[in-house]
Design a protein around this nucleic acid. Sequence first.
DNA 1: CTTGCAAAG
DNA 2: CTTTTCAAG
Lengths: 257, 257
Amino acid sequence: MSWTLGTVNVNGMRAAVRNGFPAWRGRSGCDVLCLQELRMQEDQMTGDHTEPRGWKRVQVDAEKKGYSGASVWSRLPVVDQGTGIGLDWADAEGRVAWMQLDRARVYSVYLPSGSSGEARQAMKERFMAHFFDWSRDLLATGAPIAICGDLNIAHAEADIHNPGANKKNSGFLPHEREWFSELLGLGWTDCFRAANPDAREYSWWSNRGQARALDRGWRIDYILASPALAATLESSSIVGRTPALSDHCPVLATFGA
Amino acid sequence: MSWTLGTVNVNGMRAAVRNGFPAWRGRSGCDVLCLQELRMQEDQMTGDHTEPRGWKRVQVDAEKKGYSGASVWSRLPVVDQGTGIGLDWADAEGRVAWMQLDRARVYSVYLPSGSSGEARQAMKERFMAHFFDWSRDLLATGAPIAICGDLNIAHAEADIHNPGANKKNSGFLPHEREWFSELLGLGWTDCFRAANPDAREYSWWSNRGQARALDRGWRIDYILASPALAATLESSSIVGRTPALSDHCPVLATFGA
DNA sequence: CTTGCAAAG
DNA sequence: CTTTTCAAG
């Protein structure tokens, strides 16, 4: 039996619900869903903001209201679950939640954005350094693992609409792209790219101007699979069709049993 | 030649413009317009937020962005103009602007609301005390004067939809109503009430619930005329028809030459 | 340009 | 319930 894993940065679960998230989720075919940037805390949530009956959820909130937050929803059996990446300030920002399923461990990760200035870019890079070592330790287990989420970096020139104009913008800096290459070098598979070597599809568009209408986007949302999981990859897609749930769109991957 | 004076609390000039303020102004028949709660500063304004060609404007901004502010617009000849009521903290909140026209002096006044708590109610009462003496001095000149604006007090039982339920709410407290009676006792004429002794019309409705649809309003916006001006009062009306420009509606008065 | 928050009404 | 501001993305 194959199963489908999805990830989407909802940029505010309340806004995403207004934009049709519940209906999208129902027809998405996902068995497991990783969400980032919930921008609401668990105690503010009502039915529409949470998992349907029969599903399980693990969620991590930022201490700051209206900011960050991540969760994993699953309709597959859950063996264990938790939150955090072992970096205090990042964990207080609610950036990592995970579930151990019967067939894989699934992480929902929201890597800090550096676009709001030097100070946040420095935090992003501290997170990247920690994440790199942490992900290497995960690979060392040999287990089937997926890291899903908004990594706020477009890896290659094919992952951004205008590589030339963005070489000095956070998210496409040369050293960020090099970090991504080294991450894949550890053994992670970028599922969408592995399944679609020549695709030019994006998962995020700026809200400024007509970026989305003109498809001036970036591919910054990923499903990374460890070797044991990547061996079962069947397909992966980016769901860029309207209606838009947020400034990001969902990324899916289907794995064999 | 008669002339028409209007007053309206716009609760954000930007929102009022979205709600059709420019078109309303054009068909209102006003020669002079007093505005309160502009909630934007002069340097943020573009064409739609300001007077049409051939008009004059005097405006006072709050120091705090997005807060308070008042102005007078006139298409009649302006002899002099100014701002403030001589109360430092209130003047820093941008609550009084005036124009000396050829036929009258016109004040646009935004009296503080006390609805957000005890501290603001105390400020309201300090403003009321100062305003009382200030308005008495104005009357002593014997000149034709109008004080227009949001006084944040409903005077009589006929000026509020539910007198019984509001006796403990700021804006209909017994001592506020008594202050208003004493103000009229100084010699000011409440133009709308003078022209419409039995009317039950309101100039403000809460945004909560269905207050406006159910006409559960308060009459808290006034045109007060000094004896010399009141002697020329021809008519006064409240423009409660949709489309709503804000949570308040305009109040008009027409005077003879 | 958009989300959600906060203060104020 | 609504306006505007603010931080953040």
